[in-house]
Design a protein around this nucleic acid. Structure first.
Length: 722
DNA sequence: TTAGGGTTAG
């Protein structure tokens, strides 16, 4: 049985407490209502004035004395006691208690004017206590905390912030809690572990939930504190506390966004070793990681493992695999998954806009625009209107194919539909204008972007820098880069990498190394692309030792080499006439499952370079046996070699085999064969070769055609006329 | 938690 226990020394507090909050709170469970009509009638009218007085005097002990000695006190005590049982013991409240209670009463009614008066007496402990008191009114707790910090310039302590974070998390106001946590780390300069200590110190007192630690991990990943997030997880584990699977998922997702896939697998295996139960998000992230690594079949295996674990897939699961397949160019697989989505999910999942956009992107990237149209029609029929992303994909697809006019028409169309082109759309158009060599067009795109208040981003800057370098405006590119760098607008490595590559291409390795230094100065860590460009140049210069030095430096910074770097080194070995060493390297790479089409092509090129045609063709056969490795570059390398040695018949035969394998020769094949046949064959044979290739769908190289074929055709026409 | 744009190798 509960009683209304009124501390006789503070009738005003209990009166107000009961009146404004008739239900007992967790913090004051000993107070409950028994005789409310009586209390209502007995509420003294002048209590607010008395409290006002207390605050004004500030000297609480004296005030307390005066108050206790007040003439009406004894009478009231006797009146109060009539309807009450008295609790077992009373303790004399401290001056802090008085202020605390006064704040609570007035805060509940948002009497900020009163709180202004009490503010000089605020202490860290008091603020934390008030925040905890209002755990069931998180909005008030937050308003009070903000008021303390903003209006009064009272510096928040870690303890009061943590108290509020606990309150916010308990009421599921995660975004507010994250904002506070981010402020602690960014504004107050605290480390995630210091914040963790603060949260742990107040955990029991605030009767908090483990979700508070998950929120800290989320705050860390959200503000880019990757190491901090991991340190929090580790420290909690050491102390026997655990973050939930949600926090792990958040950390995994963060790693994948950073493209740190190697680390993702390490941390994932660590989590599995702790015997966490994975949920659908965890499986989705595993599938996402596999797709990022182009391990689509393993992603599908993970999907079945997920079903076996009794976890049901959702549309995100499918979209990740479908998009992965599309990005790899395996549109057939993507479409198969789309068709089987229903069966594979027990008819619980159907396509959404993301699925359609992925398929549209897949078809755009392989240039199949008739299918793109079909997909878009299906999409609208299914009730999904194209969004900015759909248009962005279509615009980039058409521009990539060389149809900038169509891309610009689509820009107009999307604007007419009320969808404004964003930075991504502008960047794409800008990039393809530069690729087409239309620098004026690129400038007008930039002018339009500024005119329409579309904010440029790091992609815009690197596109401009690359565009300028590509067309020989290297000085302008460097000047522009310097300007944006001085304005602290550069946040990623792209623009530095582009300039480093530009310097490497012009064999200015000293300049490239200087730029690497500039990266460090600006807080940018050189990445695999940076090292790749340097290693490639050193290899091409025959300075294998310097390349190895860079490689070691890269390994020291814990960056594992990728296929680009392996292939650059391989190319360096081939150029150094160390083809045997190169072959050994390929064997080692193969044994580690690390070889791709470019590895083989590089080695074939190496064999051709040293005249070892037998080995080159043996490798070609090996590639065909493995399957999926032979491409246009393989044929072009071999055709180039045959042409150099005047073996035009064999070169033509190889071109025909290329066609038989479904590979259409490109401008390089055309140029090599026409140039070689012009030297070794009759004019009729050259024209015949040209006609044959054009009939087979080869697009002739304009310069070669004008220089060789066109004059021969003119001659032939002349002869016919004679 | 998933979809569009920019950098390195043959």
């Amino acid at each position: 049985m509960q009683f209304v226990v009124i501390d006789a020394t503070y009738p005003h507090y209990y009166m107000d407490n009961v009146l404004s909050n008739p239900f007992p709170t967790e913090r004051s469970p000993h107070i409950s209502l028994k005789t409310e009509p009586w209390i209502h009638r007995r509420r003294p009218d002048k209590l607010e004035g008395q409290l006002h007085l207390i605050c004004k005097l500030r000297h609480f002990s004296k005030t307390l004395f005066l108050f206790l000695g007040g003439g009406s006190f004894k009478r009231r005590t006797s009146l109060f006691s009539r309807g009450l049982h008295v609790g077992k013991q009373f303790s004399c409240p401290s001056s802090e208690d008085i202020v605390f209670r006064a704040i609570c009463v007035n805060l509940r009614h948002r009497r900020w004017k009163f709180l202004e008066q009490v503010s000089p007496s605020l202490t860290d402990a008091l603020v934390s206590r008030v925040v905890r008191e209002f755990q069931n009114s998180p909005q008030l707790a937050l308003e009070f905390h903000n008021w303390v910090g903003e209006k009064k310039g009272f510096p928040h302590s870690l303890a009061s912030c943590c108290a509020l974070i606990h309150v916010l998390v308990k009421s599921r106001r995660f975004d507010d809690a994250i904002t506070l946590l981010e402020n602690l780390m960014h504004v107050n300069g605290m480390t995630p572990l210091e914040v963790l200590d603060g949260l742990e110190d107040s955990y029991e007192l605030c009767d908090s939930f483990p979700a508070v630690f998950d929120t800290l991990v989320r705050a860390c990943t959200q503000c880019g504190a990757t190491e901090g997030a991991y340190a929090v997880v580790k420290k909690l584990r050491m102390k026997g506390r655990f973050v939930t699977i949600h926090a792990w998922n958040n950390f995994f997702s963060h790693l994948l966004k950073l493209n740190e896939i190697g680390r993702f697998w390490n941390v994932y295996n660590e989590m599995v070793s702790y015997r966490y139960i994975e949920n659908v998000n965890t499986f989705n992230l595993v599938i996402y990681a596999l797709c990022k690594e182009c391990r689509i079949l393993e992603a599908i295996s993970a999907f079945y493992r997920m079903l076996k674990s009794g976890i049901w897939p959702n549309v995100v699961t499918f979209n990740m695999i479908i998009n992965g397949a599309c990005r790899m160019g395996d549109i057939e697989l993507a479409l198969k998954l789309v068709r089987k989505m229903g069966v594979m999910s027990g008819n619980s999942v159907s396509l959404n806009l993301v699925t359609y956009n992925s398929i549209v992107n897949g078809f755009c990237k392989i240039g199949k625009f008739s299918f793109v149209e079909e997909v878009c029609n299906d999409m609208v029929k299914a009730g999904f209107e194209p969004d900015v992303r759909t248009y962005g994909t279509l615009i980039d697809g058409h521009a990539r194919k060389g149809c900038l006019e169509e891309a610009l028409r689509l820009c107009d169309e999307m604007a007419e539909r009320g969808l404004m082109p964003n930075t991504v759309v502008y960047n794409s158009i800008l990039h393809w204008f530069y690729m087409e060599g239309d620098l004026e067009g690129a400038s007008s795109v930039l002018a339009d972007m500024i005119d329409k208040n579309v904010c440029p981003d790091n992609v815009t800057y690197s596109t401009i820098i690359e565009g300028l370098c590509r067309h020989g405006y290297v000085v302008q590119a460097f000047n522009f880069h310097r300007q944006v760098l001085e304005m602290n607008l550069i946040e990623d490595t792209f623009s530095h990498n582009i300039l480093i590559n530009c310097l490497c291409k012009s064999n200015n390795l000293a300049g490239a190394m200087q730029l690497v230094g500039s990266m460090f100065i600006h807080g940018l860590i050189p990445d695999l692309v940076t090292y790749g460009a340097l290693i490639d140049r050193y290899c091409k210069e025959g300075q294998i030792e310097s390349a190895v030095q860079i490689y070691d430096e890269m390994a020291r910074l814990e960056e594992g080499p990728n296929m680009v770097i392996y292939n650059s080194i391989l190319n360096g070995l081939c150029k150094e006439m160390s083809v045997d060493v190169a072959r050994q390297m390929v064997d080692s790479l193969q044994s580690m499952g690390l070889s791709d089409g470019i590895t083989y092509n590089t080695l074939i090129n190496g064999y051709c370079g040293c005249g070892n045609i037998d080995e080159a063709f043996a490798l070609f056969l090996e590639m065909r046996k493995v399957g999926g490795l032979v491409n246009r570059v393989t044929y072009n390398t071999l055709i180039n070699f045959l042409c150099k040695f005047g073996c035009i018949q064999q070169a033509k035969e190889l071109m025909k085999r290329m066609l038989l394998h479904g590979l259409v020769p490109d401008v390089i094949t055309y140029t090599m064969l026409i140039t070689c046949s012009a030297k070794n064959c009759s004019p009729d044979e050259v024209i015949e070769l040209h006609d044959y290739m054009v009939l087979k769908g080869v697009i002739p190289d304009r310069q070669t055609y004008q220089a060789i074929v066109s004059p021969l055709l003119a001659e032939e026409n002349e002869e016919n006329r004679v």
